[in-house]
Amino acid sequence: MFKFIVFRLFWVVVTVWAVSTITFFMVRAAPGDPFMNEVRNLKEEVQAARKREYNLDLPLIQQYGLWLKGMVQGDFGPSMKSRDKTVAQIIGQAFPVSISLGVIAMFFAVMIGMTTGVISALRQNTFWDYGLMGFAVLGISIPNFILATILIIVGVFLLGWFPLSGWETPYHVLLPAFALSLPFAARISRLSRVGMLEILSEDFVRTAYAKGLKEKHVVIKHALKGAILPVVSYLGPAFALILTGSLVIEKIFDIPGLGKIFVLAAINRDYYVVLGTVVVFSSLLCFFNFLVDLSYAFLDPRVKLEEAA
């Protein structure tokens, strides 16, 4: 077990390093630099002074070395566009927001998805099943900015129950998290339905019923555990998609999250901000995949972690 964890964590670090290194050289290969301006081009000397200030006058490989050295010491470097801020400050403000939005959305997705999935499996080929799965197909196929627009029209303008945008009270998070979660809820719903159907036809479930247990007990105590497995393996990639896919929702609801920062930084060639967000995103994704692998061991006794290691 311990060996497995160390081994996987090592690979998390290697993956993040590889991703950020590729990003480092890719953003630098793009034409332009952070000191271009639409309004008045800076004078040559001023540009030179700026480049020097941020080490951009050194050979690329040396810059990479300096950046990596800073990274290892936990220094993300300065922002070149928002000159009075460091990357750590910028990410520090936006990251908790993005994570919160992602976690709440994930929570909604699992709750809604699991409930509907299990219900349709238990009531297979009934009105409930067809109705819920119909919704699931809709949920998968409707892009979330359309969902968000519908939610705003209904929740804000017609009913007046929710605030429109911003990030101040827990109320503010409900609509965006819901809009963000629905497509994932739909997928989870389908996955858990399939998982549940498979489990329900297994011998041990039949045995449980034969022993005279009530349906509630059979489902919750025996079947659910197996049905959850396909969902769990989806959680890792789902969380990744939620985090990286929240940009549109962030824009529509004006939420000060990482997505907006990431895109703006890329457009402005704010190198260290781009790198900082990439590092944060990639470490997060790797870490979540690691957690998913780990959770298998708890949920499915057939998986032996030592063997995997």
């Binding site: 908790p96 927001v97 994570i99 976690v103 990030w167 101040e168 009270t169």
Partner: peptide, 11 residues
């Protein structure tokens, strides 16, 4: 736990 972290991001 995650919920409580997120409430911290509010004013």
């Amino acid at each position: 736990l995650a919920l409580s972290v997120f409430t911290l991001t509010f004013s």
